[in-house]
C-alpha cells in the first residue's frame, strides 16, 4: 500500500509498485482527468506535475513518487476558480474533442510557472503534446493570453 500526495490530499493506493502513475491515478484513485494516449511518453496526454515539474505519468512507476507532490488536472482550480491557463482556454474556446487538453493544460501551466512571458519558441519547446483535432493555433493564443492576464 503506497501513500501518495495528490492534489494536496494524502491518498492510499493499493497497486503493484511498478504500476505507472497514470494507471494508479485513473484506475486505483479514480482520477480520470489524466488521459492515456500512447503509454510511451510521446503524446503528453498523461502529463501531471510532480514537485512542480510537468511529467508524463505513463513513464513514472508508483514506487518512485512516494513523498512527492503530485498535481493532476483535477487539482488546478481552487475552490472552483479556474487557474489562468484554464480560464484562457475557456475564454478562447480552445478544446475540440478535449481528450488531449488535460495534458496540454498541465504542460502550459508548468510553462507559465517557469516562464511567465513565454516566447513562441518557448511555447514550441514546452508544448510537445499531440492534439489530433488540431487545436495548436488556439493553444498558442491562449498561452499568450494567460501570460498577459
Amino acid at each position: 500500500m503506497a501513500v501518495l500526495n495528490v492534489n494536496g490530499k494524502s491518498l492510499q493506493a493499493n497497486a503493484d509498485p511498478r504500476t505507472p502513475l497514470l494507471w494508479v491515478l485513473r484506475d486505483t484513485l479514480g482520477l480520470t482527468g489524466t488521459k492515456y494516449g500512447c503509454g510511451i511518453a510521446q503524446c503528453g496526454a498523461c502529463t501531471v506535475h510532480i514537485d512542480g515539474v510537468a511529467t508524463r505519468s505513463c513513464q513514472v512507476p508508483l514506487n518512485s513518487v512516494g513523498g512527492k507532490k503530485i498535481i493532476t488536472v483535477e487539482g488546478l482550480a481552487e475552490n472552483g476558480k479556474l487557474n489562468k491557463i484554464q480560464q484562457a482556454w475557456l475564454d478562447l474556446d480552445v478544446p475540440q474533442c478535449g481528450y488531449c487538453q488535460s495534458g496540454m493544460i498541465m504542460a502550459a501551466t508548468a510553462l507559465l510557472a517557469a516562464k511567465p512571458q513565454p516566447s513562441d519558441s518557448d511555447i514550441d519547446a514546452a508544448m510537445t503534446n499531440i492534439c489530433r483535432c488540431g487545436t495548436y493555433k488556439q493553444v498558442r493564443e491562449a498561452i499568450h493570453a494567460a501570460a498577459k492576464a
Binding site: 485513473r26 479514480g30 482527468g33 492515456y36 488536472v73 483535477e74 479556474l82 474556446d93 478544446p95 481528450y99
Partner: peptide, 26 residues
C-alpha cells in the same frame, strides 16, 4: 462559444475510456 468546454478543462468530462461502474473489471 461552444457549450461543452468547461468540463474539458478540469478533468470532469467523461470519455468512454473514463467509464466506471461499481464492480467493473477492465
Amino acid at each position: 462559444k461552444r457549450l461543452d468546454t468547461h468540463d474539458k478543462l478540469t478533468g470532469q468530462q467523461i470519455y468512454g475510456i473514463d467509464m466506471r461502474l461499481p464492480g467493473m473489471l477492465v
